[in-house]
Amino acid sequence: MEPINLAAIVLMGLATYACRGGGYWLFRQISPSPRVRAMLAYVPGTLFVSFVVPALLQGGLQPSVGAAATLATMLATRNTILSIVAGIAAAWVVWGFR
């Protein structure tokens, strides 16, 4: 085990607990306005869009085909596990044709 890896993991753990525990603590002290709450509700969606879209632009065909298969399966079945398996399978097919 490398100390620097452990340090990174501990810092990640502290940052995460700051959200879990700190959020509850902070909201008990102050009650944020509905406007602030509504704005914060945009964070999860925009965050994952910002992760996925650049990765697809730079990754080329394989991840794009996989993402399309994942999305299509998700919209059709609403089954998360199934849509991830479908995405990996589609990416695998593209990988096989390299």
Partner: peptide, 29 residues
């Protein structure tokens, strides 16, 4: 992740991705 890992970046990633948890606790008040 890299060797060595970028300590600030990984911690900040954890914080930002998990910000939603800060909004979840208060619901169970």
């Amino acid at each position: 992740w890299s060797h060595p890992p970028p300590l600030l970046a990984t911690a900040l990633a954890a914080f930002v991705v998990n910000l939603r948890l800060a909004l979840m606790g208060p619901v169970l008040a």
